[in-house]
């Protein structure tokens, strides 16, 4: 996206322009950091789904408890027991739910987790290069300031 901008020779820019460039990079870094955080939250949620399935599966083979609390509202719960197992309604997006067994349901989430990890890695790469750019701009800006001060003294 911002690739053509990198071709500009920073040392030829005016200090004011450099400050603008820095501001822009700052904004971009903020934006990408927020995206990365959103990705990580989404991933944590998906992991919770997989963990929930694992827990229910455990209750099936007798190694875990069958009891659970059914939320009626956010503050009212009913104690309940799992009767039907190996049938999960998975939200696949845009309001569609599909009935799946445990391994298939987990597969849906695992695929998404892997995808998010890949995107996260890409984002981290972008963030790193943006940070590098920011450092470069800051360095050039500092050099310019030193130069300017030296000129003032003469």
């Amino acid at each position: 996206m911002a690739a053509p901008q990198q071709q500009i020779d920073l040392t030829k820019l005016q200090p004011q322009q450099l400050v603008e460039v820095r501001k822009q990079i700052d904004q971009e870094i903020q934006h990408f950091t927020q995206s990365l955080q959103a990705l990580q939250t989404a991933q944590a949620k998906l992991r919770d789904c997989v963990a929930s399935i694992d827990n229910l599966e455990k209750s099936q083979d007798g190694t875990g408890s069958k009891d659970l609390l059914v939320p009626l509202t956010s503050s009212l719960y009913l104690p309940g027991q799992v009767v039907k197992k190996n049938e999960y309604l998975v939200d696949i997006g845009t309001g569609y739910f599909v009935e799946k067994n445990a391994p298939d349901a987990k597969k849906v989430y695992d695929v998404k987790i892997v995808k998010l990890s890949e995107d996260g890695a890409k984002l981290k790469d972008i963030l790193m290069s943006k940070n590098e750019m920011l450092n470069r701009v800051n360095m050039v800006l500092r050099d310019k300031m030193v130069e300017y001060e030296a000129q003032q003294k003469n």
Binding site: L89, I92, G93, T94, G95, Y96, F97, E99
Partner: peptide, 25 residues
């Protein structure tokens, strides 16, 4: 929206007529 719908379609590709599908209305 486009990306989300594409994911849903990809999921549908893996299913068949026997799959039980529900729509949240």
């Amino acid at each position: 929206q486009y990306q989300e719908n594409k994911i849903v379609l990809a999921e549908f590709e893996k299913l068949n007529d026997d799959s039980k599908i529900y729509k949240l209305t």
